[in-house]
Design a protein around this nucleic acid. Structure first.
Lengths: 210, 210
DNA sequence: GTCTATAAATAGATAGAC
DNA sequence: GTCTATCTATTTATAGAC
């Protein structure tokens, strides 16, 4: 009984540390995030944080792994569900955006990890990333074989999808401060733009971009 | 004579600090970059660094300002040179990529500053950013008025251009480590893809992306 | 202009009591 | 499981000699 309560509290502590850490890593980066602050934001002591997580980098990697695993899972489901290439591509974009919306700190951490040249990425995370790209590659190949799309480097397509999504989602606050226009700042407009852009690129017929 | 030599050495020192700092901020971020390391990489002492630059954040802001000012200048020249909307758009993409290639640390610092929610951006830097977007907006408006393009939110277009460019340029090393394919990793392929993507999006006629 | 030495504050991590 | 107190190393920044 008491033991159960303790375990439940422990789970709760872990969750709060997780949330506080994700926020800190997103807004200040790995080096900028301070363990003291994370613990304080989580409402516990720093020693308690070290009770739950081996060290700072382990905590960071766990968050990173969760993010990429979520995208890997969601995009794999899109493949499993099947449908036309266009339907699957829309599903792919949707899965990416949904994963980012469910994890508000995803975009910033993603951008930072790229700038960090993948310094904290271990093999498990790389595997998830490769899985995401493999799913996209499968969708693109389907489209080519169905004769509706031309052949395009999957990584460039991924860059064309993920990078704008992450940029737009990560810059919501700063754009206001900068006085940089967002006539329609909705996520729907973002989905629409990215999807349109990608489909238009893939369905280009013949016309070489000279 | 001696004074002149000293001034020249000072300039040289400043330049070396600049280069070492840009590299450090790009690869480790603002908090991750250490002043001692920057000074050492520049071949001078830390005290000397503080002789040339007031403090860490001033040094960082100077680098940031230079980057955005360069893009602002280059894109303004594209507007001045004129030409068809398509020619100007190609010039815009080229200007962006050239600025990034001339400053190898631009992409990573750009990505980080976004994740940082513009924490280090002062009004001068914001002005440069707005100027870049204003130039793109001008090009897009020209195209709409000429009847060759449809109307699209300029910021979304900017996101569709800059984000993939920065992502691809910043991930060259890590992609190799990750085993993520780059069938054609050339900058030309990148320019081609981004330009094709953008033009295809803008020239879409009628077809609503339902 | 350049350096050595050091101040002053902060950081990640642990010991040990409860 | 949770906390206080603390160790050790690092970090930004400056003082002051040359």
């Amino acid at each position: 009984m008491v033991a159960v309560r303790r375990i439940r509290d422990a789970e709760e502590s872990r969750r709060r540390v997780w949330g506080a850490a994700a926020a800190a890593f997103a807004s200040r980066g790995y080096d900028g995030a301070k363990v003291d602050e994370i613990a304080a934001d989580a409402g516990i002591n720093k020693a308690m944080l070290y009770y739950h997580f081996a060290d700072k980098v382990t905590l960071y990697r766990a968050i990173l792994q969760d993010m990429f695993a979520a995208v890997a899972l969601a995009t794999t489901q899109v493949r499993t569900n099947g449908g036309t290439p266009e339907q699957q591509l829309r599903g792919y974009v949707g899965a990416l955006i949904r994963a980012a919306e469910e994890r508000p700190h995803f975009p910033a951490i993603w951008l930072r990890e790229i700038a960090d040249d993948g310094r904290h990425i271990d093999e498990g995370i790389f595997a998830a990333m490769r899985s995401v790209l493999a799913n996209l590659t499968g969708i693109l190949t389907d489209g080519v074989q169905a004769g509706v799309w031309r052949q395009v480097d999957p990584f460039l397509v991924q860059a064309g999808v993920a990078a704008p999504v992450m940029l737009v989602l990560a810059t919501r606050r700063v754009r206001q401060r900068a006085g940089i226009g967002t006539p329609d700042g909705s996520v729907d407009a973002l989905i629409d733009h990215v999807t349109t852009m990608t489909l238009a690129t893939l369905t280009l017929t013949g016309r070489s971009p000279a």
